[in-house]
Design a protein around this nucleic acid. Sequence first.
DNA 1: ACGTTCATACGATAAACGACGTACTACGAT
DNA 2: ATCGTAGTACGTCGTTTATCGTATGAACGT
Lengths: 142, 142
Amino acid sequence: MSNYDRSRTIVTTHEKGDRVPTAPAARTLDHPEPGEITLEGVLHALSDPMRLQIVRFLWPLEQDEEAPCSAIDLAITKSTTTHHFRVLREAGVIRQVYRGTAKMNALRRGDLDALFPGLLDAILTADAARRGREDRLARSPA
Amino acid sequence: MSNYDRSRTIVTTHEKGDRVPTAPAARTLDHPEPGEITLEGVLHALSDPMRLQIVRFLWPLEQDEEAPCSAIDLAITKSTTTHHFRVLREAGVIRQVYRGTAKMNALRRGDLDALFPGLLDAILTADAARRGREDRLARSPA
DNA sequence: ACGTTCATACGATAAACGACGTACTACGAT
DNA sequence: ATCGTAGTACGTCGTTTATCGTATGAACGT
């Protein structure tokens, strides 16, 4: 289940002579190959309000521009945030990479557009339109 | 297939007085108003393989053309089929109406296109492309 | 060495989900 | 009246999900 690279974390037992975590070997994260990305998986990943909010945040960024997890203000705890980012990554929607102490996130726009042309834009445009409607409703006299 | 006789459709409300006991107020089904349809709900409804298969079946039909539940051959039992159709209906993806002993289904194409322009086509085109890829892979020499 | 910051792992929990079987209803035809 | 067909209601079962809290780890400054 966890794609976290445990090659080094396992070593909590400093048994003196066994694997010592002297070579951090840059934490890596598993991402699905384009061929492993499924439409159902992507749709499911985007069917959660929090995750949609994350993608909405990432969407306007330049191609491959990255943002740390903490850049997005979600009304959930940090551990739940981690969970949602992982779901998005495992579905192939975002790419995550460690940069120092932060974990940067970027939409896998190229891969998704190649696999499902127009899908991402249709979803996010639809979402933007929906939000526009709701805002207008909220502002209109009751 | 698709030649359903609509000549005896609507008339469940008999003129005579009010609700005639023989006509138990024509079973009706609740559908969300366009304003109640959410993007998350639609995405969630379409993120299941069986439901995607249902929509894929309904998609090529003419505008508002209907098909009974039984027209689609799903590898699940009847009760599970009922469940999936209900999820689609409650998400606003399809419209269901009783016609005699059958329950007819149609995509709510107009409503969906108005709310989320391009979304349905993007999803189903993406799905078709994906299936094309998989078929090619399956046929290629191992 | 120490503390701060960012993010994870783990464990718990309550809810939702997908699937099933059985018993049932509604409608139309025999 | 009875039967078959189409679909529902309900209860169950096992899995997944979304959320949390707490403890932990990794990188960076001081």
